[in-house]
Design a protein around this nucleic acid. Structure first.
Lengths: 206, 206
DNA sequence: CGTATGCTCAAACGATCGTTTGATTTCATC
DNA sequence: GATGAAATCAAACGATCGTTTGAGCATACG
């Protein structure tokens, strides 16, 4: 019977990979840098994950599964309700991502996700579409319900632009840094407020 | 005395590099793929540009100098005028980028620029800041004039989000593709309209 | 205890990377 | 046509890449 004392090694590889992929890109981060940072042997990646490409996918899966679940759970609470506002739906989309940066230890994951969007690699895009598309589809349906005056084309345009803004902001390029005189929780709340108000304005403007 | 018959070779390298950098990234595109696509010898890159890093910078300079000049010229027309609207300033920022995709042959350049934003490489970010920052500063000043009700912090937030949306959209991830029944010029006009209205809403919402 | 299984390790594999070299070709100028 | 600088070329450089190998170590089970 298999012994699972390797959980620690796999996790350490995933965490180091997430950090290095965010910092240097998927091609830029070598397995030698990666395994050195994780404190494991070079061959451990191919032993546990089969290949570097599989490792990339596992890095996504670990966070994305959790992120998708939280987003869909939050959406389910408000979807279809007559009193639901646009801001409610946007909060269901945005808050889980911000929370991930805080409690998941995955503060760098959104940056990795932004990199994946910038990569035009077909297999990576297909993987993201397979593991991410159904979430976007459900949110899009709810947006369509709340914005019936918009044509399908107009709605897709606006969602695309909102996605770009949020990806950019949450990957932390910008000047989003907490001031020392506000708590982490307060800062996260302010960030969420900015993103939600901006996205709502972009989606619903006349 | 130097003979400048190399202009063709340099240009072909720059064009091939722009295309491959957009497609496979700066690290992902090798000099062998690049020179093969350009139809030149492998050693030509190091002969004409010194190194691959210098080539990357030259790819940016070629388009960025032109883009900056056009944006600043368009801004100069409307800046400080009492009747200038937010949409006017946004048009001065957005239209030159869309035009570049059309007449400059640099349809892929905005994608390269988006990749550069996703890269967190320090030297590349410094280069972009040096060659791009003064333009953003001038536009920011004009935005501040037209949106006096916003605090500095609020304005920076919104500009950052708008930048993310525009970078995302103009690099062409989205579903922005021309329908066969509209002309190229009409399509560009519609795209500009979408971007400008979205950005105006995001900047000026209450 | 013996052994089988999961795991780690140093070492090497072939491939590809950016760069350099030195010979050869091109071409304006005399 | 001869000359010399600029440009191009095939070939090779050392370094680094992802991956594989086979021996050694750990531990659970008969």
């Amino acid at each position: 019977m298999p012994v699972n004392s390797s959980a620690s090694t796999k996790e350490r590889i995933l965490t180091a990979a997430e950090s290095l992929f965010a910092q240097r890109g998927f091609e830029g981060a070598s397995l030698r840098q990666l395994t050195a940072a994780a404190g494991v042997n070079l061959a451990a990646v191919n032993y546990h994950f089969g290949s570097k490409d599989n490792l990339v996918e596992e890095v996504f899966k670990r966070r994305l599964d959790q992120l998708n679940a939280r987003r869909l759970a939050a959406l389910k609470v408000v979807a279809g309700q007559p009193e639901t506002t646009l801001e409610d739906v946007l909060a269901a989309f945005i808050r889980p991502a911000l929370d991930l940066s805080h409690d998941g230890g995955g503060g760098l994951f959104m940056r990795v996700l932004a990199r994946a969007f910038a990569e035009h690699d077909d297999s990576l895009r297909k993987f993201l579409s397979d593991n991410y598309g159904h979430v976007m589809r459900q949110f899009t349906a709810e947006f369509a319900r709340l914005l019936p005056q918009l044509s399908k084309e107009e709605l897709y345009w606006r969602i695309d632009l909102v996605t770009g803004a949020l990806t950019h902001a949450m990957s932390g390029f910008g000047m989003i840094q907490r001031k020392s005189d506000v708590s982490e929780l307060t800062h996260r709340e302010q960030t969420a407020s900015h993103l939600i108000r901006f996205a709502a304005a972009g989606l619903s403007h006349p």
